[in-house]
Design a protein around this nucleic acid. Structure first.
Lengths: 180, 180
DNA sequence: AGAAAATAGTTGGACGTCCAAGTATCATGG
DNA sequence: CCATGATACTTGGACGTCCAACTATTTTCT
């Protein structure tokens, strides 16, 4: 029965402050001439937003025994014709280290949502194949994530598009190349 | 001499793909009617951007034996009148779990950049006080971070402000309240 | 005053991420 | 045809983050 195993919350006990600590840091940076306060505020905001959003998404996925990292693996497989992919390819598509894929597949495999298969022609390669249980879980989990707008309930679609666009710029050349 | 201890890179060996995997996921979500594809793309972008930016910042701080988490602690102390704060207050200001503060202060303390002090009147409280070495390091580290624009070299100040503004909305009510 | 409740930090465990090193297996080239 | 080099994956360790449980101290309140 896949143990939900509560994970981070990143917003728990801590009560909200009467002021925005990032806005305050911005002021300090400015008055002390530390430089690049816009970038500092943005980077700090991103770090904090990531933790907050991840905690929301993970909370929504916990009932399925999933985390966002595992969900991404499952979703990727679900969207593949054959329902299976080499671990290496998954790492590239998800933009994470190969070791992270190994880790996620290990856990999904333990939960019976995915199965490891040897590559038919290349002995080095391992395929991860989604199981029927995995397809069921990912379908339900996807509905749940859509219901909470992937943790971005507070933001409009316009806000989302702006974020995606700005970060696409940041990722360009690192994660992908325009026209090869 | 504070061991730099190389940390994550999040962009290493992995070669850039010939297409943006997030844009591709957006298409898949749309054609398969999985819903909320704007939010999905934004959340995925945030996760990835955070990892990428953190790797850049950490790489810049490694020569000082720092990570971004430890730098934030040091910077906060440096900006405080007395150069010292209760660990709990730091956790609130940095918006992280108390255990994370304990962890960071442990390491900074080992490096001689910070010192633990008992609170003069409250026996439960522990103060972290920045040392002279800590002040020196944080000053140099701050210049280094400004030089790389806190990992956001690719973005304009306008982009940074937009990010900060959008995430401020997200954090409102969680990290801080408008008018107490 | 004394008991119960709240607060502050620490410890140990779980996760995900990364890197470096190690093991297989495939591809190349002499 | 085998040696060298490239690939694919796994393992073990480091970090930061979180939570739950625990200890110590301070407040509150009966």
């Amino acid at each position: 029965m896949a143990s939900p195993s509560r994970r981070q919350q990143a917003s728990n006990g801590r009560r909200p402050l009467p002021f925005d600590p990032i806005a305050e840091a911005f002021r300090q940076w400015t008055t002390n001439d530390w430089g690049e306060e816009e970038a500092m505020a943005a980077t700090t905001s991103i770090m904090r937003a990531q933790a907050l959003i991840l905690s929301r998404v993970d909370a929504a996925l916990a009932p399925f025994g999933l985390t966002f990292a595992r969900y991404e693996v499952l979703a990727l497989l679900q969207l593949t014709r054959t329902g299976s992919l080499p671990l290496g390819k998954m790492g590239m598509r998800l933009m994470v280290h190969p070791a992270s894929v190994t880790n996620a597949v290990d856990r999904l495999s333990d939960a019976g949502l995915v199965r490891r298969r040897p590559h038919p022609t290349d002995g080095r390669t391992t395929l991860a194949e989604i199981t029927d249980a995995g397809r069921d879980v990912v379908t339900r989990a996807t509905k749940e994530l859509a219901a909470i707008r992937y943790g971005l309930d507070d933001l409009s679609d316009d806000d989302c598009r702006q974020i995606t666009d700005i970060f696409e710029e940041l990722r360009r050349g690192v994660d992908f190349t325009d026209t090869p």
